[in-house]
Write a protein that binds this DNA or RNA. Structure first.
Length: 109
DNA sequence: CGTCTGACGATGC
DNA sequence: GGCATCGCCAGAC
């Protein structure tokens, strides 16, 4: 293993369709609560096949655009997975932020 | 080994 | 609420 690199990739790959995760959240999951920048670096080095479009800023904003070619492309992928957006192409985080604890459909809280 | 960078996060104004 | 600054971690040079 290469350390946090593989940890981050595995965590991102574990994000289910229709859900998104924030950089800081992923960083915390791999043991680096304040290493959001490290997640950024990992995604830059991410291999093909990784659902990096499901990784967004906590504010619900997508990547700057030049990352995927355009935000429209990333937005389309998320829309196709069932992720809804606000009026500004920002994700409704409260609705779609991925939570590993989200395995209780009977307990929405 | 020192410095810069990178798709962020939190805080301050 | 939007912008600026600092902080954060790991890799590349």
């Amino acid at each position: 293993m290469d350390g946090v690199f593989s940890e981050i990739l595995k965590t991102v790959a574990a994000i289910p369709a229709g859900k998104v995760a924030t950089y800081g959240q992923i960083a915390a999951m791999v043991g680096r609560p304040r290493a959001a920048r490290t997640v950024v670096w990992a995604l830059h080095s991410s291999p093909p096949g990784l659902p990096c479009h499901r990784v967004v800023a906590k504010t619900g904003k997508l990547a700057p655009g030049h990352v995927f070619g355009s935000q429209d492309w990333q937005r389309s992928l998320l829309l196709a997975e069932g992720v809804s957006f606000r009026c500004d192409a920002t994700i409704d985080m409260e609705q779609h932020q991925w939570q590993p604890e989200d395995l209780d459909p009977d307990c929405p809280l």
